[in-house]
Design a protein around this nucleic acid. Sequence first.
DNA 1: ACAATAGTGTCTCTCAGACAGTATCGT
DNA 2: ACGATACTGTCTGAGAGACACTATTGT
Lengths: 240, 240
Amino acid sequence: MSSRESTRPAGYDPDAYPRFAVTVDIAVFTIERQQLKVVLVERGGEPFQGAWALPGGFVQPREDLDAAAARELAEETGLDAPAPHLEQLGAYGHPDRDPRMRVVTIAYWAIVADLDTPRGGSDAAASFLVPVDTALSREERLAFDHHRILTDALHTVRASLRTTPLATKFLRNRFTISELRNVYEQLWDVELDPGNFHNRIIEWDLLEPTGEFRRGGRGRPAELYRAAETVDPATRSGSR
Amino acid sequence: MSSRESTRPAGYDPDAYPRFAVTVDIAVFTIERQQLKVVLVERGGEPFQGAWALPGGFVQPREDLDAAAARELAEETGLDAPAPHLEQLGAYGHPDRDPRMRVVTIAYWAIVADLDTPRGGSDAAASFLVPVDTALSREERLAFDHHRILTDALHTVRASLRTTPLATKFLRNRFTISELRNVYEQLWDVELDPGNFHNRIIEWDLLEPTGEFRRGGRGRPAELYRAAETVDPATRSGSR
DNA sequence: ACAATAGTGTCTCTCAGACAGTATCGT
DNA sequence: ACGATACTGTCTGAGAGACACTATTGT
């Protein structure tokens, strides 16, 4: 922690240093009906009563930050399995970000596969999916500094898709190449050439073909793939 | 901040939520004598007495996180001008990272130009430059979780150099292309072809030629350049 | 038959790196 | 003259995107 002794005598007087509340807030992204959406909750009390907010809560006294984020994510989304991807975004601690008291929040971003299955968790009923564009359309819609946090999280998830094969986390176990292409198209707001996308994604050995096909669409049935096991190179996370 | 009311009644009872100490720690990188180095301080008291640590200190009750980092950076390095680059790395808050109490630290990384000019600041005398390899060679050399923080910061600064024209921040106002090449070579531990590097860097319009040349080297004098003004696109920082 | 989607193959253009060659210094 | 460094120019191979073409379905 590095208490510079000159700045603060690092004695054991419990009042020798300023006290803060520490929370975690999570931007949970998913794709529902071919649209990028984020999980929000509606605030019941002041301040920002009635506004939308990112799910989150206090870090417990002996709880790791990552663990707090994982716990809140499970509570809010009601997912049984752990989230496919959960990563720290950064700390937000402007002195006036909460009018009641000094709160530093550690923001996280997460990707979950389409979760329209009935969500059971404790608070899941209070949460809902909102298109990211809608959530960001008016800054006052979001409580606290959550507009900025969500904006930053969106930038980060977009950039992460450019450098890591994370797009499959938006999809269930088995998926078609066009579903994967749609993930990139939604996140980057572009149209990708289906043929080239198919060529590249196969070349990169990121997918393993299952023998199965998805019928029922309009055209030729598409083969189902699963994400190949990736040797996670130097994940810079883990109990920080 | 999102106090999930169900998790914690967000009343105004000041003891209704856990209290944490919040600090900032900074990995300040520079290149001295063609070597990548980091600013460290030696701990005077327990715990980790005698070990090296990243400079840092407590965030003041009404101080923004970025401001706290900038203040500590100025105090430790004794730089008069603001650091060329200071950016948040992330929060580290394992419950046992400080044996005395629960401390969450917001880590930052910074780039400063060669600062072998006499440093005047208050605590600057206590700080010193250490080659990054040396600092990381034995995990116990660094106090707390600073080994992990420095490792993460090193990854981040390396990656940032790959995506943004940040290398010039290691250099003073005017520099030669070979000096800039050395920045990349030190950070990535590679040898770059001088001719190709020259071609690319000129093509990218990141440098502006001054008419001047640096003599005294062994070969043909090298022209001095300065960094071109860059339109900082969507810096996702700023008072978070 | 036809529209729609899946998947394959080909071409071209760009760009990064290999490398040869020229320019200009200090010794 | 010679070695060293700065700078310029040329070539080539890999990869990204444009696009044409084939394959297989539902209607």
